[in-house]
Design a protein around this nucleic acid. Sequence first.
RNA 1: GGGCCCGUAGCUCAGCGGUAGAGCAGUGGACUUUUAAUCCAUUGGUCGAGAGUUCGAAUCUCUCCGGGCCUACCA
Length: 489
Amino acid sequence: MDELVAQRIAKLEELRRLGIDPYPPRWERTHTSREVIAIVEALPPEASEAEGVEVRVAGRVMARRDMGKATFIDILDGAGRLQVLLRANATEGYDLLRLVDLGDFVGFTGVPIRTRTGQPTVAASSWTMLAKALHAPPEKYHGLADPDLRQRRRYLDLMANEETRRVFEIRSKTVAAIRRFLDDRGFMEVETPILQVTEGGAAARPFVTHFNALDEPRVLRISLELFLKRLLVGGFERVYEIGRNFRNEGMSFKHNPEFTMLESYQAYADYNDVAAMTEEMISTVARQVLGTTTITFRGQEIDLAPPWRRMTFFEALKAHGGPDLDVFTDADSLRAELRRRGLPVTDQMGYGKLADEAMSHYVEPNLIQPTFLLDYPVELSPLAKRKPGNPRLVERFECFIAGFECGNAYTELNDPLDQRQRFEQQLALKAAGDDEVELVDEDFLFALEHGMPPTGGFGMGIDRLVMLLTGQSSIREVILFPPVRSIED
RNA sequence: GGGCCCGUAGCUCAGCGGUAGAGCAGUGGACUUUUAAUCCAUUGGUCGAGAGUUCGAAUCUCUCCGGGCCUACCA
């Protein structure tokens, strides 16, 4: 066995021999580190001690400065770090401190004091082992740097790196702020199936599993859309879901196979209403979580305050040197033009995919400040309603911040006959070799045939929003436990 | 998938053909206001795995394993 582990187990056994449980079931804490610091900071300047105040604090031992008859221990609790002073003539069990290692959870009873350097500290009258750690924590100064270990053993990353803790606190506050925003506007949070018969609502390859009780195959959902729309058919007027989607595809700095999506649907709204809600929601969330609407991402300062820039898909393509889609109106001519421009296009790509390819090449990287791209080609958007007066386009926007997409919305297609046609067009694309198309979902069509009110829908990748708000340039840094290859022992 | 890079002590890293090093952590000792405490002493390694080249490989070559960054596709 590892020598360091053996040493710690020996200490643990010595505690037991002394009648001390190294893993006691309960120990009452009265104050967090932050509360103790507040007590000390509230003391009059000449006072060095909160006389008569007894606090019980607890946390993980992060550092230890042993000076013979006095020892300083830094603990980390959920609120932050706190220094504890133990003295041979003032702390019960001082000689047993040799059984305390870095990483242990320890409780201290004592008085808040100010040291002569002014640092808030608990002068301990006693200490108690709360949980013995068998492994040393990461290096105290450099922390945990190995990117593999940081993700594989996130708990070590969290205990060693304050920035990591900050990122996930912001993530939690972001989701809470989104819920608050939607709840305040009369939206109802719902949950829909993750295990589905047919994947739908997006174009992506699914994870496949088997449902034993029904003895049927199932796929993990790739979007939330089609079930939420069934709820609009049912009569709920404002619904949203925040949930995990699964796409069995590649990983990149902005893609993870399981990712968290927000989708909301609002009856009697169109995509313009949704755009207004989007810019208000994201700026509100930023203000609540960060206290500002200004963020820095990859060295670029970005202002999330509304109103955001709006331009049409066609305009944006022209403005950034891409092809004019009013000139190249069919798949063959557009494909030839993109090929002439040296873009990687294939014969399998339909008009929508080609237009999207051009957009992501010419436009997307340039959309640093928040921008709505409006009015997408119909071929790219089988679930969106056509734009009145222009059957080539649908009422859809995607919003871009810092050069990547972070939201997508439609005026939802509620014409069941048109919806069936669109599904059939997707089938034709599949026949032509595109394996990432929207599949026909008869059950959804049947629901739509019962009537869905005019509806504005919205989808947003939560992980990407958190990347923006925390300044993290990789999605894996905002996911607590990103997928890692398993290691064979 | 393509390109570049990394894997050495529990952690952070040096060493880059001549028998394995530092700091932190650990162990023993000194020290009653330190805070990357300090000072003295000291334990700890199949140098990711395997094969090859060589008198000799952590170091060079190849294969594999794990990881990172960039790049391409879906949010």
